[in-house]
Amino acid sequence: FYCSMCNVGAGEEMEFRQHLESKQHK
């Protein structure tokens, strides 16, 4: 899983979902 807007990668879907819901996500 990879967030191109934030340049952030996650190994698991749960981690990626937490990123999308976090304040760090743009």
Rank of each mutant, 00 (worst) to 15 (best):
E21G: 11
R17V: 09
E21R: 02
E13H: 08
E13L: 05
Q24E: 06
Q18M: 09
K23R: 04
A10V: 10
E15M: 00
Q24C: 08
H19M: 01
G9C: 05
S4M: 03
C3N: 15
M5Y: 11
G11C: 04
E13C: 01
K23M: 15
N7G: 15
G9D: 15
S4I: 01
Y2N: 15
G11H: 08
K23P: 11
E21Q: 08
H19Y: 00
H25A: 05
S22F: 03
S4V: 03
A10K: 00
C3F: 00
S4C: 01
M5F: 04
Y2M: 03
E15Q: 14
N7D: 07
E21Y: 07
F1C: 02
G9I: 11
S22M: 01
N7Y: 07
H25S: 02
E13N: 03
F16E: 08
H19W: 00
G9L: 09
M14L: 11
Q18L: 08
Q24W: 12
C3A: 02
Q18H: 12
E13F: 02
K23D: 14
S22T: 14
Y2W: 07
S4W: 01
C3Y: 01
M5L: 12
L20P: 02
M5H: 09
Q18T: 10
E12S: 12
M14P: 14
Q24I: 13
V8N: 04
H19G: 04
R17S: 13
N7W: 04
F16V: 05
F1S: 06
F16N: 09
E21P: 01
Q18C: 02
Y2F: 10
E13Y: 02
C6W: 01
V8Y: 12
C6I: 02
C3D: 01
A10F: 15
E21C: 05
K23V: 14
Y2G: 01
E12D: 11
N7C: 13
L20D: 03
F1G: 04
E21I: 03
C3V: 00
A10M: 11
Y2C: 03
L20N: 10
R17D: 13
G9F: 10
E12K: 10
E13G: 10
Y2L: 06
K23W: 05
N7L: 11
Q18G: 08
E15W: 01
H25N: 02
K26T: 14
S22P: 00
S4K: 14
F1Q: 06
H25T: 04
R17C: 11
F16L: 06
F16S: 11
S4P: 05
K26L: 14
S22Y: 00
V8P: 12
K23I: 12
K26V: 13
M14H: 12
M5E: 12
H19E: 03
N7I: 01
Q18K: 14
S22V: 01
